[in-house]
Design a protein around this nucleic acid. Structure first.
Length: 424
RNA sequence: GGAGAGGUGGCUGAGCGGUCGAAAGCGGCGGUCUUGAAAACCGUUGAACUGAAAGGUUCCCAGGGUUCGAAUCCCUGCCUCUCCGCCA
């Protein structure tokens, strides 16, 4: 959520920022409603002031054995008016709130300006795409041939975009989760968490999935619970409605969670394979910090995610999303894209963003400065990494002519010392 | 799932329907004292909105209701605890 002060005092710059996102919102109705809201509020407050005064006078008059009938009758009218005004006020306030909750964050000055994905800016590449002496196979062909991925049975059990990992496939997924968490939590860089993967509406609103993106979420209707699309939701909301101490910042959390996405609107995209599943594993990194540190810490967090790929020996590049491709809540985002040989393309495996105070304002995550001032923290998060897609990258980049897969050295201890996965 | 108890400030914990944002204690902060610290004593100590300020409004889990007036009464929901049942 943007600061209402900014909207009132600096609307031109807000509009400019939104224009960079290809967004042209009409603010006129809101401006009017906002004025009206403040007017009514003042009116209500004046009436309430009178009522409060009377509430003190009445007992005094009673004590002095003076008549109170007139005053009470007068207050009856006042109270009636108050509740009428409040009814209107509530309606306007919730409409205004809803409008604000649907405005995206503004891009940071360092974000490249552009219309679409095509304008994203490559920051760096790491590693070289492997050269194969044969036509590299897709990970689903490899996985099925090795008997470690079973898409047919995944579909039978649940439906399209679900997979059954078997044997060493399941082991590999688990190995990656453990490896990633071990690296991130080494020497206390991130505190490990294991949060709920089902959350309430407040949490989803706090991190920005609601109210706008409800159709992307799985919904448990009986009790209005929602399945998280990313670990960012429970991790960020850990500190919702809290005032943190500056001396405790920055806070860094890492967690493995399942993630669930409806993938409404992505029909026809990545219909085969692990890339786009309704349910997947992810290790998420989240930081809370004072505003002055957030851009430096975004780089740190990005580096932490990159480290995993480096240690696994998987070629990747880092891309800075342009203003037109930025997610709803982000002020700045780096995507890490890993090389996928069968597609001869880099594909997203991590997204690292600085939300500035956008989520903190929604979720009411604040901190007290050393000077005693209370202000919103900045939140930063990123995948470290999407586990299923890491499996994709390993299967495809490490594939051998004989159909086997070499297991990255750092992962071997997590695979019981196994050096490769081969069909028996 | 059944029966009961309860949700008050950083914590513990008072609070008759009417000067209650809320006693008291602890903790925190500032000071006196001290070479320093502890102890003792004194003072101070929630948040949001609004206003240049003075001030005003709101918040005692959440949402409704009763009332001139609600932390206090009623209803609903959520959460916590105890007992029973079931259960990984």
């Amino acid at each position: 959520m943007l600061s209402i002060k900014k909207l009132r005092d600096d609307l031109d710059n807000v509009k400019k920022g939104l224009a960079l996102r290809n967004l042209d919102l009409s603010f006129e109705p809101w401006i009017e409603a906002d004025l009206r809201q403040r007017e009514i509020k003042q009116e209500v407050e004046t009436l309430k002031h009178r009522r409060n005064q009377a509430s003190q006078e009445i007992p005094q008059l009673k004590k002095a054995k003076k008549p109170v009938e007139t005053l009470i009758n007068e207050m009856k009218t006042v109270s009636k008016k108050i509740s009428e005004y409040e009814h209107t006020l509530k309606k306007i306030e919730s409409e205004n709130e809803d409008f604000l909750l649907r405005i995206p964050n503004l891009p940071h000055a360092s974000v490249p300006v552009g219309k679409s994905e095509a304008d994203n800016q490559e920051i760096r590449q790491w590693g070289k795409p492997p050269a194969f002496s044969f036509e590299p196979k897709s990970h689903w062909d490899i996985g099925e041939a090795l008997g470690i991925l079973d898409f047919e049975r995944g579909a039978k059990i649940a439906g399209a975009r679900f997979v059954l990992y078997r044997g060493l496939g399941a082991r590999l997924e688990r190995a990656l989760i453990n490896y990633m968490l071990d690296v991130h939590t080494a020497s206390g860089r991130y505190q490990e968490m294991l949060p709920p993967v089902i959350v309430n509406r407040d949490s989803m609103t706090g991190t920005g999935q609601l109210p706008k993106f409800e159709e992307d979420l799985f919904h448990l209707k009986d009790n209005d619970y929602l399945l998280i699309p990313t670990g960012e939701v429970p991790l960020t909301n850990i500190h919702a409605d809290e005032i943190l101490a500056e001396s405790d910042l920055p806070l860094s959390y890492a967690a493995h969670t399942l993630c669930f996405r409806r993938e409404a609107g992505s029909y026809g995209q990545d219909t085969r394979g692990l890339i786009r599943q309704h349910q997947f594993n992810k290790v998420e990194l989240v930081k809370f910090c004072p505003p002055a540190q957030s851009y430096a810490l975004l780089e740190t967090l990005l580096g932490d995610a990159e480290l995993i790929l480096q240690k696994l020996g998987l070629p990747y590049r880092v891309v800075s999303l342009c203003t037109g491709d930025l997610g709803f809540t982000a002020a700045k985002t780096y995507d890490i894209e890993v090389w996928v040989p069968s597609q001869a393309k880099y594909r997203e495996i991590s997204s690292c963003s600085n939300f500035e105070d956008f989520q903190a304002r929604r979720a009411k995550i604040r901190y007290r400065t050393e000077a005693g001032k209370i202000q919103h923290v900045h939140t930063i998060n990123g995948s470290g990494l999407a586990v299923g897609r890491t499996v994709v990258a390993i299967l495809e980049n490490m594939q051998q002519a004989d159909g086997s897969i070499l297991i990255p050295e750092v992962l071997q201890p997590y695979m019981g010392g196994l050096e490769k996965i081969a069909s028996i």
